[in-house]
Design a binder for these strands. Structure first.
Length: 308
RNA sequence: CGCGGGGUAGAGCAGUUGGUAGCUCGUCGGGCUCAUAACCCGGAGGUCGGGGGUUCAAGUCCCUCCCCCGCAA
């Protein structure tokens, strides 16, 4: 089939790769290269690199809604459009181009978690189940009729990065099933239940700020949910310390909220939260690398210090 | 050349105005103990990121290159 694939980041890779393997006639529409990293080197989106590797034509637009984007899309004349974490909102004019419409792969069980960062928010909110959904794209934000869904359990210590990888692969699998059903004419789109709908906002740097007044479980969920990006952090004596990995524990000791109640290279680092202690397993001081808390304690005495 | 922090023993850090390179943990050996991740004694392990320079003498000062990281984008 002649398919226009619209996707930008890593999440889109397995789906895109699947379409390539299936031998579809593809074109990639994605964001422009962006400055990245410390030196601001212009970096192509992951999907672009994959496209080039397989000789798939690439079109990059800041806004595909604009006339140039619409024109390029029309010129390619796709039968079907597929989006996965595209990061741009499509106009009705865009959506009207392919006769078969547009299918989106979304990393949540819609209508829950419409929007930009469903994976992170599912973990931050402490959910134990999430999944992937394929849907018909409408002009609204993730509001279109649902085609297929697949659930998955969220591990108690799973990070957003880990879940991201799993859902990206499941998304590709679900997309494949969806296309098969489309070909067989067995798709049965069903409208989303607006009463159950929820929207999530984008994750900002500040989302990663740890509030130790929350219960240990909430702190743990936040740390998992923002790992590896943007990463959780807290202030320790004026420095911003990143908190990469935590573990729930049943220690009876108590101290002031945020205080390093136990800080021993052999036992580990335990901080008082609003409810129970939490063990910080991996952290990172500014200018330094990410490391085991037990290792960090060898050169950074933390007993009695307090996170804010 | 956006701002800044850093590369010292296997790991995490310290190293004062240049003057024989230290600490904690680990590791190896020995001891104590019913026993131990505890305690005591002892040992091994470092061309101080690379190159150049100043100096009687450079981890420390100057120049240069490489690599890592935080912030900002």
């Amino acid at each position: 089939m002649r398919i226009a694939f619209l996707g930008t980041p890593d999440f889109a890779i397995p789906s895109f790769e699947m379409l390539i393997k299936e031998g579809h006639e593809l074109a990639l529409f994605t964001n422009p290269d962006r400055p990245k990293g410390r030196h601001g080197a212009l970096t192509p989106p992951p999907t672009k690199e994959l496209a080039q590797k397989h000789g798939v034509p690439v079109y990059q637009f800041e806004k595909i809604r604009r006339p140039e984007g619409v024109a390029a899309l029309k010129a390619f004349a796709p039968e079907l459009m597929v989006t996965a974490a595209f990061g741009q909102i499509l106009s009705q004019e865009n959506l009207d181009i392919p006769p078969l419409g547009c299918i989106n792969v979304h990393a949540s069980l819609l209508p829950k978690y419409r929007g930009a960062a469903p994976i992170q928010w599912a973990i931050i909110n402490g959910d134990s189940v999430t999944g992937v959904t394929t849907m018909l794209t409408e002009a609204g934000l993730d509001t279109g009729p649902i085609l297929l869904q697949k659930e998955t359990l969220i591990g108690a210590d799973e990070t957003a990065g880990e879940l991201f990888d799993r859902l990206a692969i499941q998304g590709a699998g679900l997309l494949k099933e969806t296309l098969a059903a489309l070909a067989a004419g067995t798709l049965a789109p069903r409208l989303q239940n607006e009463a159950e709908a929820s929207r999530c906002t984008m994750i900002k740097k500040e989302t990663g700020r740890v509030d130790f007044f929350q219960p240990a479980q909430r702190v743990h969920d936040l740390v998992r949910g923002v790992s590896p990006w943007p990463g959780a952090y807290a202030e320790l004596e004026g420095e911003s310390v990143k908190i990469w990995k935590t573990r729930l524990c049943q220690r009876p000791e108590r101290g002031e909220v945020g205080a390093c109640v136990i800080a021993d290279p052999k036992e580990g680092l335990f901080v008082q939260t609003g409810e129970g202690l939490i063990e910080i397993v991996e952290l990172q001081f500014p200018g330094s690398k990410r490391m085991e808390a037990k290792a960090a304690l060898l050169g950074h005495p933390m007993r009695g210090k307090r996170f804010a």
